[in-house]
Design a protein around this nucleic acid. Structure first.
Lengths: 222, 222
DNA sequence: ATCTGTGACTACCGAGTGGTAGGGAGAATC
DNA sequence: GATTCTCCCTACCACTCGGTAGTCACAGAT
């Protein structure tokens, strides 16, 4: 019983987990099937029984990541309705998604570097809708005067995507730049807070102190 | 004559160039010495004559990159004297440095991912001074009211570093997100312009319309 | 009790890896 | 003219790689 049904998915998932960790840390070419199977505690052919090829394993890791992302994104877009709420939610939840497990950011970044052409259809499929929605929101905001008119929506979103993924992927390394030995957890919080600040400040127009622009409603989230 | 003095450095440099390109494109582990030597047009042992080890070749590529960077940075810091000029110069020249050859950004990013611990001393050596100077400039700007007081100098600089490197490293791939087939050269220009806009807007306080703070000189670059 | 399918194993393979040994052509030095 | 030095070559090595063949233990179904 303990070996029949549950163990099957269990082992496959264990392989996936260790593969994800190792791929994220050392890259696809930097990890051998022997490395992975050793971590799992099985022999190499047993691993190949579950995933017939190293490349299928890579794809499986990536698919699980994207599946998780696709699971979280629509709810996110549904949940928050009003403009600035939606922006805030999408942005901070995206950060949270990658902050939850930095391997995700590292993995995506590596794939972006290693297999640019193969990533483009995936980008098209999984990132494009996101970008389109946010871009449209930004454009709407520009018309309404909430968003800085100089902002380039499409380019802005691309930069923020890179910033979120890049900052979290390299966080562990760039801790070296922190002057004092801050408790890491706190540093991460401070770091992501600054990220959100940069994103918002560079997008939204300052709250009109005197009342210059005919902004419709809440001109600027906290 | 044509083979004695000049060819020596020439071949070594050719090896370095092709290694840089290939490492940037496929990663250190994704490139074999055979690949590199084939590009150069020599045999593998000939390559190993110049660089005794694959790892020394990697280091040589990295060192040349950092040497170039160290060559460009001090001049940069010397040239521009006043605060906002200095910031503007440092930022845009840094962008230009990586935009000039995207392999530089890719290479740095890969090293950051692949060898975090070995990169930390290099960061300490080559990036820290830069960060310190800019951070101090930001703090000074905060005291003078030119810079947003909510900004976290150290974290801000880290984010901008990641943003510059990340955006240029992934530029070719993220072109896929551009809706129309813009002439690429123009798209790059638009992209870097937006990057600079984000960096400045999120840092500097809006030009005081009434005149609240006792800012010394030009409170805000174009 | 027997059959069947699952999932692990040992043993092995060809290709490719980084790296070495040793030799040879040609220019520079004596 | 002999020697030395530079730089490339062919041939080879030990090892690791992803992947295959075939076997075996065992749980569940018949």
């Amino acid at each position: 019983m303990s070996t029949s049904r549950s163990a099957r998915a269990d082992i496959a998932q264990q392989i996936l987990d260790h593969a994800r960790r190792l791929f994220a840390a050392h890259g696809f070419d930097g990890v051998s099937l022997a490395d992975i199977s050793k971590r799992v505690g099985i022999r190499k052919p047993s691993l190949l029984y579950h995933y017939g090829t190293k490349d299928t394993l890579r794809q499986a890791v990536l698919e699980q990541l994207l599946a998780h992302w696709n699971d979280v994104l629509p709810k996110l877009l549904m949940a928050a309705t009003t403009g600035s709420e939606q922006f805030d939610a999408v942005l901070s939840k995206t950060v949270a998604f990658f902050a939850e497990d930095h391997d995700r950011a590292r993995l995506i970044l590596r794939e972006l570097l290693d297999r640019p052409t193969q990533m483009q259809p995936l980008i098209e499929l999984h990132v494009r809708p996101w970008v389109t929605i946010v871009s449209n929101y930004i454009r709407r905001g520009q018309e309404q005067g909430r968003v800085r008119f100089e902002a380039d929506p499409q380019s802005y979103v691309a930069h923020m995507t890179v910033l979120v993924i890049g900052s979290l992927a390299t966080f562990e390394t760039l801790v070296a730049l922190a002057p004092e030995h801050e408790p890491r957890e706190l540093l991460l919080e401070r770091h992501t807070a600054e990220l959100l600040r940069i994103a918002k400040t560079s997008l939204f127009r300052p709250r009109p102190a005197g009342g210059a622009s005919p902004a419709t409603d809440s001109p600027h989230p906290s």
